[in-house]
Amino acid sequence: MAEQKKVRFVIERQDGPDSAPYTQEFDVDYRPGLNVVAALMEIQKNPVTVDGKKVAPVVWECNCLEKVCGACMMVINGKARQACCSLIDNLEQPIRLQPARTFPVIRDLLIDRSVMFESLKRIQGWVEVDGSWDVKDAPIQNPYTAETAYEISHCMTCGCCMEACPNVGPQSDFIGPSPTVQAYLFNLHPLGKFDAPKRLNALMEKGGITSCGNSQNCVQACPKNIKLTTYLAQLNRDVNKQALKNIFNH
């Protein structure tokens, strides 16, 4: 039998938030269709480095393995991606895994993305329904608008756009492409649009949409192919109109 083909992983590890990063290398048996999460799972079963040292298994976050939960975002060969759908066959080897350092690192590849969820509070990312009880029918919606909403509503808060965006990070207060564009989602809804001025005003605050520098990395990095830059431009338009209203209506 031919010798088992191996895949080399170079993983940037870090024991805690304040520890210094270091790298370790692992070999994983190749098989067709292998992805990065599956490879990390293999390392869990036998956490031994290429030097034969038995180490603690690599820590990372994953849930669904179907590219819908957004948990397993990491930097793979320099780019932010979902690890579950990163097939080994499509990656240059050795494969370098790093945590997305735009966010605070907890351990190894595990990062703290709570800032994204906090930003969703800031932009009022919800429809102000009276309650979960029944109140007649819901309004009819333009199916084309609904389709745009559906596209934006695919955003899984994975943070790829945040990691790719040069204006997001510890050096900046920008809330990032994803939470910003979510504001547009709720402004599209027939009930959500009642609060559109609130959301637009929130985007005008420090760290809001004005911090976008138009590098347009977000739209390239988005694993869900959301047309982020288009909606950012639309929001810019809406925000400008809102600014005029703020000036002339009061």
Partner: peptide, 14 residues
């Protein structure tokens, strides 16, 4: 209806 009001982007007829 509740989900619809909350903004779930259900697929719609023409």
């Amino acid at each position: 209806h509740m989900f619809d009001r909350m903004g779930v982007p259900f697929t719609r007829t023409p």
